[in-house]
Write a protein that binds this DNA or RNA. Structure first.
Lengths: 190, 190, 190, 190
DNA sequence: AATGAATGAGACTTCATTCAT
DNA sequence: AATGAATGAAGTCTCATTCAT
């Protein structure tokens, strides 16, 4: 039996996620990462072969978490399902920002990274399809304004995630408020 | 007297802006910048003393352009003014993303950079105040739903700028569409 | 654990001292330094954070060596003490030249460098005081010509250190000779 | 007739000398030099082909000035002659320091620099011979202590030039004082 | 398994020198 | 003759990655 692990794979990815959100892909350095962990910088290479592999693994793990939740959503009532999806996305802070770095990763340097990225991309499509499907159904069911093109509705809905929560309203209420704003608008109802 | 300029200050800042949006603050390298311009890397230093100075100047220029337009907006009709502001912001692609890098710049390295950043920050406040003022007025005039807290309305309005224009709808129409979505919501009106 | 050191901190400072004396502060380059050591240029940064830190550490080490010796000198007989101090200074070749570079070092770049420099400066004062104290005593005791102002006597005494030893006379004898010349002059005694 | 000269060759060499004494050979930059002159940096190349040529010319000019004075000295009374030589050397502040940089100059880069350096070196020998000749005569005439080897006496005499003038005593008196100290010593005469 | 040390590639910046007006 | 602009060589420093213990 060898020595105990000084930090777990999960701890490593947790800090990676936090630092990616703080500093971006190009500002993410293994030097700073190892300072947040307990062990030495070189120990990181016991877990992953290089930097890009870590980032890909991090993205995959976040995506898996989201996917698991979204697939548990009951789609019977499409409006209710959309409301739940919004909550899930809001919970995963910076999710979109994170995924935006995907295309910067060099896939040739590591097969593992390439595989993780492939997974992430496919999952991304799955998520996108789910939302588009639900929105299309909502429209067919007469819940949405038929004068507005679906892509515009979709874009605004997805973009809700990035809305700055200026007052730090607690998540469930914040989610409800955003959904209402999206559905009914900011204007005075007649 | 002296040789002809191989590139202008304006060209330099144009490419800087483009590259900042593509690669972020930490991914912005003078090597790549000089590759997009015609001259040598060291020629850049004829214009600006260091990297941060370039970035600060770039941010200032963008901000000045926006400021000039927003200050020409007639605020008599607050709803109309907001609509125009949205158009202005949408025109300046990636405006927000760009400004987000401001705090990473080292102000001690260059007085010029520090001055540009001070300008940018003050202008930022001016813009924010203008929007908040207009939204408050709109609320008082009974144009907005009084049940929704103003900060939430503000956040969503500002965040409209980042909405992905999936269909590449032309700017004037895209702006009108987003404004309508914000005001009336995506839902079916009764 | 970890690889063997390719060179020690002490070796690094030894070469630094030699090169500072040969080329001066501005002519001291890490490239040449690493060429004299066995390793790569970047390895130097395992020991010191930047160039100025190396120079400051070098100066401090030399100063510590001198200080240790001068503080062991018995000051009962002031003339004998002065003779011993001269020997100590002569032993540390180029001591003065080295210290002359102190003011060129940028103290803001490194706290370690600033601390080392503070030490060096304080020690410098200590040395200066010791010599001035001994010379003043010697004068009071009637061992020096009272017609010559003390600062002139001091200046010439300190400057003895830089006298070119054209014949490479061995240190102890060279020291005795310089002391005698300082005390009795080069002229024929009546 | 072309344009007027913006600065003279002499002004250029004046500033060069001053800056060489302040910053040393390796710390001497044409950029700073041109800042002290009135014209542009590139204008310097109208006078000299490169940096080393300037430094060599500067050294030669200083040397010529000294040589002219030393050769006018009446050597009939050797002690008086030595006293006058000391005054001449003291007048040319930093003379020795300056000449110490001679060996760093690359002679292959410019024939003019090589010629100037050859002159400087020959003149240096002339000066050295003059002093050694006078000191030897002084010894033969019984004016110097015969127990002290001539090279030691010479070294100390030449080194007088570098003595720090802590009280800023005016040159003629300072020269007299140093000469007396050298001749009679700092000790109490019996 | 863990790690301290070593290292080369690459980024920023400065400067002597050349070029074109 | 004078000069503003251009440039490549060289220097400092950082960082991902490898190596030896």
């Amino acid at each position: 039996m060898g020595r105990r692990h000084v930090f777990t794979r999960s701890e490593l990815l947790d800090h990676t996620k936090r630092m990616l959100l703080e500093h971006g892909y190009e500002g993410f350095h293994l030097k700073s990462l190892s300072k947040r962990l307990v062990g030495a910088r070189s120990t990181i290479y016991q877990y992953y072969a290089n930097k890009d592999e870590i980032i890909a693994a991090c993205m995959r793990r976040v995506m898996e978490g989201v996917l698991e939740q979204t697939q548990a959503v009951d789609e019977t009532d499409c409006m209710e399902a959309l409301r739940q999806l919004l909550t899930i996305y809001l919970r995963e802070a910076g999710f979109h920002q994170l995924m935006a770095h995907a295309h910067k990763i060099d896939r040739t340097s590591s097969a593992a990274a390439a595989a993780d990225l492939a997974f992430v991309e496919q999952a991304h499509d799955t998520l996108k399809n789910q939302i588009e499907r639900l929105l299309a159904r909502a429209r067919e069911e007469g819940r949405l304004n038929p004068d507005i093109p679906l892509p515009a509705v979709t874009g605004v809905f997805i973009n809700l995630i990035n809305t700055p929560n200026l007052m730090n309203i607690p998540l469930p209420e914040w989610s409800r408020m955003l959904f209402q704003l999206w559905l009914e608008g900011a204007g005075k109802r007649p």
